[in-house]
Design a protein around this nucleic acid. Structure first.
Length: 324
DNA sequence: CGAGTTTGACCGGCGC
DNA sequence: GCGCCGGTCAAACTCG
């Protein structure tokens, strides 16, 4: 991806589910502020990223630049144009799905539509082939509905970021147009069907693209240090802990911060990742530069670096901050 | 020995 | 219909 070179086409973050306050489209040019929380095997760290070309955050850095929502035509006006050529393939995978994993509603997506075929066609073969396929088909029939997905980018040297949960790798595939393979992980907890995919950005190998699918149905076996700060319910903590960060995008609306926080708390109960957006600051002096405004998740190690305010100033070079 | 990883094969979706 | 590609499976393997 060209995040560094082209402010309008930077890292991306995707989610199937967004708070109601989120705009259906989040043009990069609107800029914004977001939080991120990250921990990796080298030690927990807070990553703050902006779109100002800051590249030298040695610890893991989250890169949230573009939010893209692809949901069935909401009763809203035509969606604004999305940035040219979103760099992530995940964009096409963001589906609109029921927020609740328990929901029995099934969308009419092509995936589901194909169920009938899958039930008949493969079964024929199975009868003469390995039992392996039988179980596979069965599984497919059982859970064809896709879980909510959420993708984000992290600047990290390690591909698999520690997020407090235990994952089992079940596959790896070469990715087209990318020299880096994509790894597939599943939560090792038996009753938890959360998956995640990890791949390195081909455009910027220093960035790892992680896509989570589903929500954890259990508390984190290894509670991330950061998540304890939030004060969420166990459920929400579990959900959130599946993601190494929370993103809060705000802008010139600092007075609304509290409100946004409340919204986020609410969203925690439903979303794997809380997002709050306000796209009203497209007139920011740095149009395409989301700013780090607030930080809600701190790790014990990172906390010392952070303050309750001005977080950005602790990390972002002052000259850059000024622009923001 | 159990848990996790690697890897080739398989399957379905989708575009041409 | 065919081929490509993403996603998954599961046997074999590695590691602690």
């Amino acid at each position: 991806m060209e995040k560094r070179e082209n402010p309008n086409q930077t890292a991306s973050i995707f989610s199937d589910q967004l708070p109601a306050s989120a705009p259906t489209d989040f043009p990069l040019s609107s800029g914004g502020i977001f939080d991120m929380y990250c921990e990796n095997e080298k030690g927990i760290s807070m990553g703050f990223m902006d779109l100002l070309g800051i590249q030298d955050y040695s610890p893991s850095i989250f890169d949230l630049l573009h939010y893209q929502q692809q949901q069935p035509p909401p009763p809203s006006p035509s969606p604004p144009p999305t940035p040219p050529a979103p760099p992530l393939t995940e964009s096409s995978e963001v589906l609109n799905l029921p927020a609740s994993p328990n929901s029995s509603s099934i969308s009419s997506s092509s995936t589901e539509a194909a169920n009938d075929d899958q039930q008949t066609k493969p079964v024929d073969k199975q009868e003469q082939e390995k039992p392996k396929k039988q179980s596979k088909v069965k599984k497919k029939n059982q859970k064809m509905q896709r879980e909510p997905r959420f993708a984000f980018m992290t600047k990290s040297e390690v591909d698999h970021l520690e997020d407090g949960y235990r994952w089992r790798k079940y596959g790896q595939k070469a990715v087209k147009n990318s020299p880096f393979p994509r790894s597939y992980y599943r939560c090792t907890t038996a009753t938890c069907g959360v998956k995640k995919r990890v791949e390195r950005s081909s455009d910027d190998p220093s960035f790892v693209v992680t896509t989570y699918e589903g929500q954890h149905t259990h508390p984190s076996p290894v509670m991330p240090r950061g998540s304890s700060v939030v004060g969420m319910s166990p459920d929400s903590a579990g959900s959130f802990a599946s993601l190494p960060m929370q993103i809060t995008q705000t802008h010139d609306q600092f007075p609304r911060q509290h409100q946004l926080q409340q919204q986020q708390q609410q969203y925690f109960h439903n979303l794997p990742l809380s997002l709050s957006f306000n796209s009203s600051n497209s007139t920011s002096s740095i149009p395409s530069a989301p700013l780090v405004q607030e930080r809600r998740f701190c790790t014990s190690s990172a906390a010392s670096l952070l303050r309750d305010h001005g977080l950005l100033q602790d990390i972002v070079p002052s000259d850059i901050r000024k622009e923001a």
